[in-house]
Design a protein around this nucleic acid. Structure first.
Lengths: 365, 365
DNA sequence: AACAGTTGCTGGAACTGTTTCAATCGGCAG
DNA sequence: CTGCCGATTGAAACAGTTCCAGCAACTGTT
């Protein structure tokens, strides 16, 4: 549409200056720069290189830690595969690292030479997603949903399988069922809690606030939750832990406390990769496939770009699936007395000088 | 140095044709194309875009599965952080997917617009690394070492800490110590086996072939190894499992077989992320930091590019570290009788319809 | 056999954006 | 007033890509 030459004319400067302004060259006068950027934005300027459009897709993060979960890893692998169809490439971008505050998102993406972005959300980035959508830049947000249909996104609907999972526990005979999830208020969080609520309601079981736990989405978070559950006077006989890492941490802590899974307590986890197979016993879990999410996202986005305009509010939901494994069974006849952490430590003694693994796991960096 | 115009003149065609040939446009006659590419290669042609050099770094894979391990994930995170200093960006590339057989590696990389590459190796890719080095394209190979100094690489020296780990077991009183590692014949493999050998030799313990296990670098691989160890008539009292996923799988299987860690068997694992904290008991392990490997690799490569020519045979080794946790202890007074898998299954029954987690874990895709 | 249409391949020219080099402007010391 | 210096800018030269037109060879039709 518009070129540096057009912008130059409109802004009353040379193409040289336009190029410099767009590339954040610091020799250009701030006032001139602002004028140029204003025109560029008005025109919805899109950089091309020697007439050719780039074929890069941005995998956009924001935050100190870029990629730090098996989830991210699997999503990225899926994206890398998904861009294949339209022969795109993936470039990793970090908003917080690289984006200047005085440029729009579109400008930033153009400067980086990407034609569209796949956005890895966090709680704080919902507004950012909306802004990007508003600028009309091709995008797709991963694992989120938006009420308004301005933002394109893809996620997994985990409510119904969450309900199913909890109903499975009820069918096994459990009546005291706890729920745990990470403490970042995102969509997933609500979906799964809602499923839990519904299952209880469907079977005339009371929803109890003190059986709902929120903690960090880390091993340590899950460990803490399990400790809290174990120490309760009227201990739940089962728990649905709706976050992958927390589930693994909870299993660890159950072992440490001498609780047998599933004889003393049943655990249902949540998995987006293959973590459920890495613990003993293998976790019964509600699962989503992070790889497929990435793959589908890439497919949607590349097609969106190929076909021209950004489709307003393209929203897709993938199904989850519920897998029964070895961490669930009938409730115990009577709940075992609460074991102290200290007692069990004596059985599996820690060698002197051992680093305590309880602490910060993923917060390290 | 050379431009499309020069190449065009030399090859006796127009710049249009050169451009097309370099970009694999299929309208150009194969014979013409070959002629153009020959000239381009002779000139060591390097594409620039509108006079500007791109600032992308390739994160190069080869193979069906792109990124599938926590290891890759951590390395990539490190790379993403490491390129920051010189303001580069990271592009994910898959040789097997995108590279045409009739273009050189340099051509492929130039076409993708990257100035240098970080190569994630596998056993099969050693020759490829050599070829890339021979072409003089800026590169750094991750987690490998080369005898000749033509290839730039970075890795962790895991031999000495492997020795230390096995000597720690000996100090605890173990005399029958097994060793397990993945069955891909790479450098790491040798390093760790060598460390194991040395430790035995230093303490006058015999090296026994039937105590060395090689299997897939997956949970299933580790599980199999543990089954094999458990079934041995004169069972080892400790094992050093020099692969992260295998270690996790072995712990799982030990539980399943009713073997108490460390009372019945001591396990030392190998970790490159934080996996050692995800199992119970926390694994004593030789550790390398995949994040740091990626970070350092990016730093070295970007500086190499900034400073001009490719430094021949830049080779860097990072140290590993040995962490003692809860999976190691003194050997049992007498080795418990071998337990059958069936017996233990009865204790923690699998619900009907359970998917067996033993099978292919990461081979799925 | 003549003709029109199609396909494969190529090049000129026009176009994209970036950088080099020189010019201009304003301030300031001598 | 003069000369110097740094900040800012633009003309021109350059990078590579693509549109469009042309040419040649082939194919089917009349």
């Amino acid at each position: 549409m518009s070129s540096v030459r057009e912008i130059a004319e409109q802004a009353g400067v040379s193409i040289t200056t336009v190029s410099r302004a767009l590339n954040n060259d610091n020799t250009v006068n701030p006032k001139t720069r602002e004028r140029v950027l204003a025109v560029a934005n008005r025109f919805g300027y899109v950089a091309t290189v020697g007439r050719r459009n780039t074929t890069n897709l941005g995998f956009v993060y924001l935050g100190e830690q870029t990629i730090n979960h098996p989830y991210d890893c699997a999503v990225l692998a899926g994206v890398a595969q998904g861009v294949d169809e339209c022969r795109f490439d993936v470039v990793v971008l970090d908003l917080r690292r690289d984006k200047r505050t005085d440029e729009t998102y579109s400008q930033f993406f153009m400067r980086k030479g990407v034609r569209g972005v796949i956005i890895r959300t966090m709680a704080e980035s919902r507004d950012i997603c909306r802004d990007i959508a508003k600028e009309g830049f091709p995008h797709i947000v991963i694992s989120e949903r938006f009420e308004d249909d301005s933002v394109c996104c893809i996620d997994c609907e985990s409510k119904s399988d969450s309900r199913r999972a909890v109903e499975y526990l009820i069918a096994l005979g459990h009546r005291r069922i706890a729920f745990a999830v990470h403490n970042v208020p995102d969509r997933d969080h609500n979906d799964r809690l809602e499923g839990y609520r519904e299952a209880l309601a469907n079977h005339d079981l009371d929803f109890r606030d003190d059986w709902v736990f929120r903690h960090q989405y880390t091993l340590a978070g899950g460990e803490t939750v399990m400790k809290m559950i174990a120490s309760m006077p009227e201990r739940p006989t089962a728990v649905y832990i709706a976050d992958p890492m927390m589930g693994v941490g909870a299993v660890r802590m159950a072992h440490e406390l001498g609780l047998n899974i599933p004889n003393d307590i049943s655990i249902i986890g949540f998995d987006d990769t293959e973590l459920r197979f890495s613990v003993y016993p293998t976790l019964t879990a509600v699962c989503q496939d992070a790889y497929t999410i990435g793959f589908e996202a890439a497919l949607l986005l590349t097609r969106m770009i190929r076909d021209g305009a950004v489709r307003k509010g393209l929203q897709k939901s993938l199904p989850t699936f519920f897998e029964v494994h070895d961490s669930t069974g009938p409730p115990p006849a009577q709940t075992a007395p609460v074991l102290s952490l200290a007692r069990h430590r004596a059985v599996a003694p820690r060698p002197a000088g051992a680093r305590n693994g309880d602490g910060a796991l993923h917060e390290k960096r």
